[in-house]
Amino acid sequence: MTAALRLLIGRSLRHELRTPDSLIVNTALPVIIMVLFVYVFGGAISTGSSGLAYIDFVVPAVLLMSGGYGAALTAVNIADDMTGGMIDRFRTLPISGWAVPAGHVVASVIRNVGSSAIALAAAILLGFRPYASLVDWLLVLALVTGYVLAMSALAVLWGLLVNSTQAAGAFSFIVLFLPYLSDGVVPAETMPGALRAFAEHQPATPIVDALRALLLDQPMGSSGVVAAGWLGGAVLIALPTAALLFRRKTRS
């Protein structure tokens, strides 16, 4: 890791600690979402043919919501840099054009994987009992990190495209609601036709299914491979596109 990247990650993490709303998003929100789903909605939602307790059913989706929402807010952070004066300072520094977007993405991964960990700790306190081997846990970590990385990279791309902090904020809504329209919160089999088709084919569903299989020691089927494909594809498209866009914007 270059010194410039390390410094820019440090800057982003300091911002995090000094902005009360992002600190709340990253620490309290995961706990609130987990409590909300387990206690408020949990009693009323049937887990359908899976036969799982609702807490076991919903934990993977809440892990994604917790990490994804904060990751989506990275769009606002980069838009702030692009529309404020900071970007001119960065551009006159002898650093590569990649360093600034990469700093935002890496800092986002660190703090939002942390958010997912907080959500997981809350789940365990509320009675979630995973059955997972060390390898399973490492795969869970890889999947959650991959999801947060993909959302952060897409967020940076979005933030660079819209070039306004307000429009950048809209990205978090898309990301927040993605897990709702998957197999994560209610079983997709209970949804009406069109929604069900969407839920079964959107990326959050295989990720949720794979996480559920890993955490509860169930057969995974093809969901792990499909999830890896989605995440890998998103990262491979979003990161270089964002870097190119950033370079183009800082050229002229």
Binding site: R11, R14, H15, R18, T19, G84, G85, M86, D88, R89
Partner: peptide, 10 residues
């Protein structure tokens, strides 16, 4: 530059 280019949060 004309626009202040320092980081407000630091």
């Amino acid at each position: 530059a004309q626009q202040a280019t320092v980081d407000d949060l630091l």
